[in-house]
């Protein structure tokens, strides 16, 4: 008898939870979830990884403002307050013309460099209806070195100040936490410092981010210039950092052996060596300003 009561009870309890399952199954059979294309969001927290950029672009009518600082090397000791006495700075602006195209401008006190670029999202990682594994962004940029020539006697043309950057960012958000990026880049310099340096440099960059929490991320970035292009005076740029996101700001704090903040400066011209302690601290503060008109007041 007690057995049958148990069966009745389990049936009553069972029916209720079964009902929900059954209803969901019914829903799936008659109205399957709409097969739409979902584009992957937030592969990286911002437009910048550390020194280099990411596959992210500024969204339409949004202005991304970044202030970047790079300090001197920590191996300079207490006299230079472990490098904090020296600082290199860059102000950068990026404005989204559409969700896939943005224009950028920057000014750095490193060689008094001006830089301008356009970033175009050629393809977006997506799932469901349209499946594509990567986000691919193209960057086409120029940089102008405006520092006065050391040798004032020589008559350099203006074009001698120009640098050209062509870079591709191939990124994939592997999981919610982990994103990786590969960035082949070609840099052309109209003038180089010594005769045995080539004008055109090819390199490949690797970057990754790992989210510890929703608002705290670790990032790393490495650039490998193909050896025939750079000589022993230069080393490969390696940077490690953390990112903290607070609403509209992203703070990036990192350590790196590069001082420059434009591709022209940190890919072929990094002089610091991690092994010798030529490591400098740096940070980027990135703020997004929204100029969308449909904002609710």
């Amino acid at each position: 008898m007690s057995k049958s009561i148990l069966i009745i009870l389990s049936l009553i309890v069972g029916i209720n939870s079964l009902k929900a399952q059954e209803l969901l199954a019914l829903l799936d059979s008659i109205q399957p979830p709409e097969n739409k294309t979902y584009y992957t969001d937030a592969t990286f927290k911002s437009i910048r990884l550390i020194n280099g950029y990411t596959s992210e672009t500024a969204a339409k009518n949004e202005l991304v403002f970044s202030i970047s600082h790079r300090f001197g090397n920590i191996n300079q000791g207490i006299y230079d307050w472990f490098g904090l006495d020296q600082s290199t700075i860059r102000f950068g602006f990026e404005y989204g013309l559409s969700d896939r195209i943005d224009l950028g401008f920057g000014r750095s006190n490193f060689e008094k460099l001006y830089d301008g670029f356009v970033k175009i999202k050629l393809a977006r990682q997506s799932s469901r209806k349209k499946n594509f594994p990567f986000t691919i962004t193209l960057l086409e940029g120029i940089a102008i070195k405006s520092v006065r020539w050391a040798n004032k006697e020589r008559d350099y043309p203006f074009s001698a100040r120009m640098y050209y950057i062509h870079e591709l960012f191939i990124a994939r958000k592997l999981t919610q936490r982990l994103s990786i990026q590969l960035s082949p880049v070609v840099i052309h310099r109209n003038i180089v410092q010594t005769k045995n340096e080539p004008n055109t440099v090819g390199a490949i960059g690797v970057g990754a981010r790992f989210k510890i929490t929703n608002r705290l991320t670790t990032v790393c970035e490495y650039f490998y210039p193909f050896s025939e292009y750079i000589n022993d005076n230069y080393s490969n740029s390696l940077a490690l950092g953390i990112e903290i996101e607070t609403g509209g700001h992203v703070f990036q704090i990192h350590a790196s052996n590069s001082t420059g903040m434009t591709e022209k400066a940190f890919i072929p011209e990094t002089r610091g060596k991690w092994s010798k302690g030529d490591i400098g601290f740096g940070f980027n503060i990135i703020r997004v300003f929204n100029f969308n008109k449909n904002k609710i007041k």
Binding site: L24, E34, Y38, E62, N290, K295, I296
Partner: peptide, 27 residues
């Protein structure tokens, strides 16, 4: 998406969170 069975008055409704549009900015 959703369904309502009138005989036993049970129902199920479901929506995809990602389908929300609007907001003050894409960020």
């Amino acid at each position: 998406s959703g369904a309502l069975k009138t005989i036993d008055r049970t129902f199920v409704f479901r929506m995809a969170i990602k389908s929300f549009e609007g907001f003050n900015s894409s960020l």
